[in-house]
């Protein structure tokens, strides 16, 4: 790749960030990796563009897919070569999810993680509001849901079942 001046480097970095930020979580396609707080850093180096992401749950199979999608999105925009690296420290937490991401989740029918909830929230012992009717009269049906990040709940007011994005 050609050598860029500082302004050109910054423009490329910003463009690469904007493109990487459009990649969505394959399991919850309303959330982008920027909403999730998974996209940590984009750097322009003499060797190319480096994108750093942080894994969510240890076993989340979406991470491999996300890496591939970032490479594809940047390649389509003519940005190459690209390396996607994984940063483990500091460990990702659901507190990094943006407010916008939380609103998108709710609109999609998934209750967003209780923020800064700590140990009690980890077990859904905090109040989880129904994403359909907003009632806090809810109860957990199963701690393990359709993906590693979700548990299954039910609203006792509107009687609808819903997914809750667990605190991590």
């Amino acid at each position: 790749m050609t050598t860029l001046d500082p302004a050109g480097t910054e423009a490329l970095r910003a463009r690469a960030w904007a493109i990487a930020a459009t990649v969505v979580d394959p399991e919850i396609p309303v959330l982008s990796i920027a909403d999730l707080g998974v996209l940590r850093e984009v750097r322009v180096t003499p060797a190319g563009v480096e994108v750093a992401i942080t894994p969510t749950y240890s076993g989340c199979p979406a991470m491999n897919m996300i890496t591939l999608e970032i490479e594809t999105a940047l390649a389509k925009a003519g940005i190459a070569p690209v390396t996607v690296t994984t940063i483990l420290s500091p460990a990702w937490t659901t507190d990094w999810m943006t407010e916008e991401g939380r609103d998108k989740l709710r609109a999609y029918g998934i209750a967003p993680p209780v923020k800064g909830g700590g140990r009690r929230a980890l077990f859904g012992e905090d109040t989880v509001a129904c994403p359909q009717c907003g009632s806090t009269e809810t109860s957990e049906i199963a701690a393990f849901g359709s993906t590693s990040c979700k548990s299954l709940w039910r609203c006792n007011a509107c009687r609808e079942p819903f997914d809750y994005f667990k605190c991590h």
Partner: peptide
């Protein structure tokens, strides 16, 4: 679901 989730966590 629970067993699959736990297995996935452990393998991760």
């Amino acid at each position: 679901m629970a067993l699959a989730n736990m297995g996935l966590d452990l393998i991760g």
